[in-house]
Design a protein around this nucleic acid. Sequence first.
DNA 1: CACCAAAATTGGTTGGACCATTGTGCCAAT
DNA 2: ATTGGCACAATGGTCCAACCAATTTTGGTG
Lengths: 257, 257
Amino acid sequence: MVQPILVKRFVISPILSPVHTPSRDDAVLHALVDFVTSEGLRPGDRLPTERVLAEHLKVSRTTVREALTRWQELGLVERRQGSGTYLKAAVTRNMLHLPLTLPSGNDFNSLMHTLEIRRGLEAEAAVLSAERASDADIAFIEQKLVKMEDAFHARHGMSADEDWDFHLAVFRTSGNPLFEQIIAAMYEMFHRFWEHPLGVQDFGHASFPYHRTLFNAIAARDPIGARAEALKLIATVEDDLKRGAANLKKQNKKSQE
Amino acid sequence: MVQPILVKRFVISPILSPVHTPSRDDAVLHALVDFVTSEGLRPGDRLPTERVLAEHLKVSRTTVREALTRWQELGLVERRQGSGTYLKAAVTRNMLHLPLTLPSGNDFNSLMHTLEIRRGLEAEAAVLSAERASDADIAFIEQKLVKMEDAFHARHGMSADEDWDFHLAVFRTSGNPLFEQIIAAMYEMFHRFWEHPLGVQDFGHASFPYHRTLFNAIAARDPIGARAEALKLIATVEDDLKRGAANLKKQNKKSQE
DNA sequence: CACCAAAATTGGTTGGACCATTGTGCCAAT
DNA sequence: ATTGGCACAATGGTCCAACCAATTTTGGTG
């Protein structure tokens, strides 16, 4: 069986007590998970120093560092020389760590890849939201929608925060927390290398009307309609991306002349 | 967390070096990327030993190990004690990494959540595969399909390895590496707590025929049909899960009496 | 109290040593 | 000539002790 990219299994182990199992750094991470949860540490809090951890766990500092390096790579922890190691995200047992990798993050195809994932997931989330939305959910989504529309008219353009809040409300209504997590990662990937939409001034503008039509479908408990509107919304973003890519190609051509 | 959609006025071009901290292990990874590309190393190939790398790069072996640990955590590399360090995925400059941590549990709802994600993504992957499959892709998928069917008939039941290989072939044909990465995580999350499908003896059995119908749709370059078959396939897994949950509930009831 | 320099703290790096696992090749028995 | 097993080398994993570099704390001085 082909193993997933990365899966770590967190099991119960004594808190900050000597480790004995093979693969020491795994054991260190297990113990660290339990320590964090038992101490109730939250993002921003400081972890014990490497030397303290090494002493308590009866392993060398090298092993502790190797374990912390892995957590750092997963974005769970941040290290500041001279200061300490700080928790960067919530850590609990039974969490699945999945590092996503795009072979070449800044070309047109890779950006389109993130949209293909969003296309599949946002459509599905819209379906589930339409099926499961309570009256309170619908009221909440509408509130976010109105806020977004107000911001749009005030600024004559899409406002990223309010836009995201609206989508977030839809994802949460779906009742499946994975949608929010994964789509947020796609969103982040997309904008990491495209913070500046290649010459597309009114980026996202075309998606505006579909926010309300999506809401209407959800409010009407119409899964099929919700799916259709979600797809239309994503399609406008794909169009923006294609226009940006075209602009870029034109610029390159011009600069060559 | 989430970056704005709007145009940012002050954007640092990724081309200009963003003054990354002059940290050694980062430099080691950059050098390794160059080495891998210049040598044309491919997944499965062996990297130089840690000692050799340390000597050539003029850094300590500890630093090399820290860098390799990070690549290992990203799934780019696999280390085998006594054997060596092996490339596990394509490595290029401009790779984009994003760690994603997902909540997971062993309850019925959490398992169903993973299937909801798969429903959205597998359907989309099937569509893209049907749109983009080359003749070689189709031959490759069919080869995996036949292997799976042979294993099925030989063992009178689904074989997880061959089943996964088939789906993997479909995902890869989609041309989007994110499908494989995300769905693999869902697959793992699903089976982590459900290695023994709760009393469902013929788990996965019902999904068998839809593998070939899915293949037929892809081979016919029929995206709509491929989507439909992928959805049917996932639906059978959802049914199995529901049956398992029902069995479990029954057992609990019986044990209480 | 405000400010600054020295000292302590903490993560980052180094070199060397040894352990555990794996791969290789030699050699003897068949 | 083939095979089986065993010694040995190669390689990643762990440990230790020391030092470097950045940061924080401390304590004294104006």
